[in-house]
Design a protein around this nucleic acid. Structure first.
Length: 107
DNA sequence: ATTGTGACATACG
DNA sequence: CCGTATGCCACAA
C-alpha cells in the first residue's frame, strides 16, 4: 500500500474542492496542521504524475493564479476556472474571497 | 546526517 | 498593494 505522504493529503484535499470554488495554499496547510504553504505548492509541483488533481482550484493568498506557469498551456488554468463559473482577470480570481472554500467546512 | 529546492505566508515600511 | 526579508518543512539525491 502507498504510504500516506504529505503530497497524498494535499491531493486528497484538492480533490475535495467542489466546482466553482477555490482554496489557498495556506488554507490547505493550516487544515493539515502540518508543514507550510510551500509544502502545498511543492506537492502540486509533483502532481504531474497524478493528473487527477484539479490544481487550478488552488491559488495563492492574493487569489492569483500563481501556478499557471506549470500548466500546459499556462492559459489552461484560467480556462478551467472560467469553465466552472469562476471569473479570472489579470491572472487573479474575481471575488476569490467569496469563492474561497474551507476544507474544514467539508467535514 | 547534510544540502538544495520549492506553484507560499506573514511582517515591516 | 508593493518590495524586501525571514520562516517554513517535506522530499530527493
Amino acid at each position: 500500500m502507498a504510504k500516506a505522504s504529505y503530497f497524498d493529503m494535499v491531493y486528497d484535499v484538492v480533490r475535495c474542492v467542489p466546482h466553482g470554488r477555490v482554496t489557498t495554499y495556506g488554507t490547505i496547510a493550516s487544515f493539515l496542521s502540518l508543514g507550510s504553504a510551500r509544502m502545498v505548492g511543492w506537492a502540486l509541483n509533483n502532481c504531474h504524475d497524478m493528473g487527477d488533481v484539479p490544481a487550478h482550484r488552488v491559488v495563492n493568498r492574493k487569489g492569483e493564479l500563481s501556478g499557471r506557469a506549470h500548466f500546459r498551456p499556462p492559459s489552461r488554468m484560467q480556462e478551467l476556472l472560467e469553465l466552472e463559473g469562476i471569473k479570472v482577470e489579470n491572472d487573479a480570481i474575481v471575488g476569490f474571497e467569496a469563492l474561497l472554500w474551507n476544507p474544514a467546512d467539508h467535514f
